[in-house]
Amino acid sequence: MRELIKEAIVDLKKTDGFIYVTAEGKKIELHEAAARGIAVTPVNPKDEVIKKLEAAGLFLTDSKFVNELNDLISVLSGSGSSKGAGKRRSFSDSEKNKIVEEWKKVEAAGKKTKAAFAREIGVGYQTFINWLKS
């Protein structure tokens, strides 16, 4: 899957906007095809990338699938809730208290800065400072 994604990125970053394929469907550079006298067909790399990704089960033109994939990435990386990117997360008073208590343990160990801790839990630095003051 990783190789497929890397290949998709390379194809999409081509400067001339197209990839070229032979009659057999193999990719070839335009200058090489011209030098060898091979007929090619220009193909929009976006269309080809979408076909390849969908064949591998990645439906990136399906907004619901993309939202679910983003939620999964967010939850796995710990960079927020599964409510979606860009949405604010509300914390209850008990959650805030637990976070402040956890910070006290981290602070005692001297392992992180307040800013790093706030980033790790997905809270703005100033919001975290306000919680510490209250």
Rank of each mutant, 00 (worst) to 15 (best):
L60G: 12
I73D: 05
E107K: 15
L53F: 02
V123I: 14
I99M: 15
A39Y: 07
V49Y: 00
V66G: 00
D62T: 01
E68V: 05
V49T: 03
Y125W: 07
G86L: 10
E48W: 13
V10F: 12
V40M: 06
G57D: 09
S82W: 08
G84A: 10
E3K: 09
I19K: 01
A35L: 14
K133H: 11
K87P: 00
L30Q: 11
K6H: 11
A39C: 08
K6N: 11
S77H: 08
E48H: 14
A115D: 05
F128Q: 02
A118F: 04
W131G: 02
S82C: 08
V75E: 08
G17I: 04
E95K: 14
E3M: 09
R36M: 14
L132I: 09
K87W: 06
S79M: 09
Q126P: 00
R88E: 10
A115T: 10
E68T: 06
K64V: 15
D71T: 15
E54T: 01
T22H: 04
T41L: 14
A55N: 13
A39L: 11
G25F: 01
I38A: 03
K114A: 07
D11A: 13
F65V: 02
K46E: 10
V100S: 04
S63L: 14
L58K: 03
A108M: 08
E101T: 11
G37R: 03
L69S: 03
K114G: 08
A39S: 13
G57K: 07
V43Y: 01
L30M: 14
W103F: 03
S77R: 13
A108G: 07
K111L: 12
V66R: 11
K83S: 12
S81F: 06
F128N: 00
G25V: 00
N70G: 08
F65L: 05
K83M: 11
I28H: 00
I5H: 05
G84Q: 07
D47G: 15
T41N: 06
A118V: 04
E7D: 13
T41R: 15
V49Q: 01
S74C: 09
L30T: 04
S81P: 00
K27C: 12
K6C: 08
E48M: 14
I38D: 00
V106H: 05
L69A: 15
N97H: 09
V106Q: 11
F65I: 02
F91L: 15
E107A: 13
E68K: 11
S74Y: 06
L58D: 02
A35D: 13
L72T: 11
G57H: 05
K13M: 13
S94Y: 12
F18Y: 15
E32C: 10
S92C: 07
E7K: 14
G80E: 04
I5R: 05
E68A: 13
S77N: 10
Q126N: 12
K96F: 04
F117K: 02
S134C: 07
E68D: 13
V40A: 01
A118K: 02
R2S: 09
Y125H: 12
D62L: 05
I38K: 01
R2I: 13
K51S: 11
T61L: 15
K46D: 03
K112M: 15
K133R: 14
A33M: 10
V123R: 15
D62C: 02
G25M: 05
R2H: 09
K114N: 04
K46T: 09
K98R: 12
L58M: 13
Y125P: 00
S92P: 00
G110V: 06
E68H: 08
